[in-house]
Amino acid sequence: MRYYEDIEIGETQEYGEYHVTKDEIIEFADQYDPQPFHTDAEAADDSAFGELVASGWHTAAMCMRLLVDGPIAGRAVMGARGVDELRWKRPVTPGDTLSIRTEVIDKRVSESDPRRGYVDSRLEGYNQDDDLVVSWVSLGMIERRQPGGE
């Protein structure tokens, strides 16, 4: 288990291969973001995208799955305080394969609860061509091994 004390600012990780399918794009969009360019390939052809694209929320969810399976697996995660700077950079389409890169950009001990530390990390999601498709800053909370210690 990796605790707050084990994590260093500047630490980077790359992880994943998530294969995006047309059926998954439509299924997610039908339930959560039912806009025609996410749910109907024919209608999407006439959209600003010119083809069926994944919802940005779906893109974020797929990258979140990679984050949980990879960089934060084995960390003493206590949840998150939120996400800052969420940006959808490029549409994700059927057949894309996503991967992520993370970098720890800040850490500090919680002033209100010495059992937890705050670890902020930048996540960038990429497609198989290494094109940036999504980015955000995760505001994570990580358990401290030694509350009250350094």
Rank of each mutant, 00 (worst) to 15 (best):
Ala41Met: 13
Glu42Asp: 15
Asp46Tyr: 15
Ala48Thr: 06
Phe49His: 09
Gly50Ala: 15
Gly50Tyr: 14
Val53Asp: 14
Ser55Tyr: 12
Ser55Val: 08
Gly56Cys: 08
Trp57Arg: 07
His58Thr: 11
Met62Lys: 11
Cys63Asp: 11
Met64Ala: 08
Arg65Ile: 08
Arg65Met: 11
Arg65Asn: 15
Leu66Arg: 13
Leu66Trp: 11
Leu67Lys: 14
Val68Ser: 12
Val68Glu: 12
Pro71Leu: 11
Pro71Asn: 12
Ile72Arg: 13
Ala73Asn: 09
Arg75Glu: 12
Ala76Asp: 05
Ala76Ser: 08
Val77Cys: 08
Val77Ala: 04
Val77Glu: 00
Met78Ser: 11
Gly79His: 03
Ala80Arg: 04
Val83Asp: 03
Glu85Ala: 08
Glu85His: 07
Leu86Ile: 06
Leu86Val: 07
Arg87Ser: 03
Arg87Gly: 00
Trp88Phe: 07
Lys89His: 02
Arg90Ile: 02
Gly95Pro: 13
Gly95Ser: 12
Asp96Val: 05
Ser99Gln: 12
Ser99Asn: 10
Ser99Ile: 13
Ile100Gly: 10
Arg101Ala: 10
Thr102Ile: 13
Val104Gly: 07
Asp106Ala: 11
Asp106Thr: 04
Asp106Leu: 00
Lys107Cys: 10
Arg108Gly: 11
Val109Arg: 05
Ser110Phe: 14
Glu111Pro: 14
Ser112Ile: 10
Asp113Ile: 11
Asp113Pro: 09
Pro114Gln: 15
Arg115Val: 05
Arg116Glu: 06
Arg116Phe: 03
Arg116Ile: 09
Arg116Cys: 02
Gly117Leu: 06
Gly117Pro: 10
Tyr118Val: 08
Val119Gly: 01
Val119Ala: 01
Asp120Tyr: 06
Asp120Phe: 05
Arg122Phe: 01
Leu123Met: 11
Glu124Gln: 04
Glu124Arg: 03
Gly125Leu: 02
Asn127Pro: 03
Asn127Lys: 00
Gln128Phe: 05
Asp129Ser: 05
Asp129Trp: 03
Asp131Trp: 03
Asp131Ala: 06
Leu132Ala: 11
Val133Ala: 05
Val134Asn: 01
Ser135Asn: 03
Leu139Ala: 03
Pro147Phe: 12
Gly149Trp: 14
Gly149Ser: 13
Gly149Gln: 13
